[in-house]
Nucleic acid binder design. Structure first.
Length: 231
DNA sequence: AAGCTCAGCAACCGCGTTTAA
DNA sequence: GTTAAACGCGGTTGCTGAGCT
């Protein structure tokens, strides 16, 4: 058992890539999914020529590339909802995420851990949370006041991170440092691989266009050829 | 001005569940 | 009915940037 989505039985000798996704990979993946749809991640990874595990592809798609994914700070309303649902269901992040359109379980999970759990008493909440056994109403109750206060006061956001509240559900500031990191960095002359049906010259152009600057969904999606009938 | 510490986010890993052969 | 493979979820880790001393 334990296929683990990784490569599988066949000779997955082609070293599987790990770490941050490059823009080329994103493009290939997005394009491929746009054409063939989601699912069958393992075969997708193979067919698309991505040296990634199916798991990795799925994660990337769900958390980033999906067009309906919403980026930006959690709004106070979402914050309250998260606290409430977490109190009700415990760490059922994916379940909670379904009630927050555009938010991913990973995002909510991170939010909970960094913003709520910590504030609500130095690991206190952590204890109770890990004890999914105790979807403590108490925990939630304790967390709420703190959390709300925190969030409201945090228009400044502790780390002073991107003060970009999502506007009208439109994904904003899709990329932050990681795009610097991944795309800006080793874009490498990769543009040679075009397994997903993305013309090499397109990739090349996209890479050049992106250069070292930031990409946003607004820039990214229009460049997925298949979504424009280019394929 | 430099170094240190803290916070936040993306990605990986392992486990459990579901589906297909 | 059994076995294998794939999918999905939750937890954990590593990296980078910002703020503070």
């Amino acid at each position: 058992m334990q296929a683990d989505g990784g490569g599988g039985g066949a000779a997955a000798e082609t070293a599987v890539r790990k770490g941050p996704w490059t823009m080329e990979e994103d493009l290939v993946l997005a394009n491929y999914v746009a054409v063939n749809g989601e699912g069958s991640w393992n075969s997708l990874a193979r067919t698309a020529g991505l040296n990634r595990t199916g798991k990795s592809c799925r994660l990337r798609w769900l958390n980033y590339l999906r067009p309906d994914v919403r980026r930006g700070n959690i709004t106070p309303e979402e914050h309250l909802l998260i606290v409430e649902l977490q109190g009700r269901w415990g760490n059922r992040w994916s379940k909670i995420a379904r009630h927050l359109p555009g938010r991913t379980d990973n995002e909510i999970k991170n939010f909970w851990r960094t913003k709520i759990q910590k504030k609500s008493g130095r690991g206190e909440a952590g204890t109770s949370d890990s004890a999914g056994s105790q979807p403590g109403t108490a925990t939630a109750a304790a967390a709420v006041p703190l959390a709300v206060t925190e969030s409201q006061a945090s228009s400044t956001n502790s780390a002073g991170r991107v003060p970009d509240y999502d506007v009208g559900g439109q994904p904003r500031g899709w990329l932050d440092r990681h795009h610097h990191l991944a795309y800006g960095g080793h874009g490498g002359g990769a543009a040679g691989v075009c397994a997903g049906g993305v013309p090499p010259e397109f990739l090349q152009a996209a890479v050049v266009a992106a250069g070292d600057s930031f990409w946003g969904f607004e820039e990214f999606w229009p460049t997925v050829p298949s979504l424009q009938g280019d394929c």
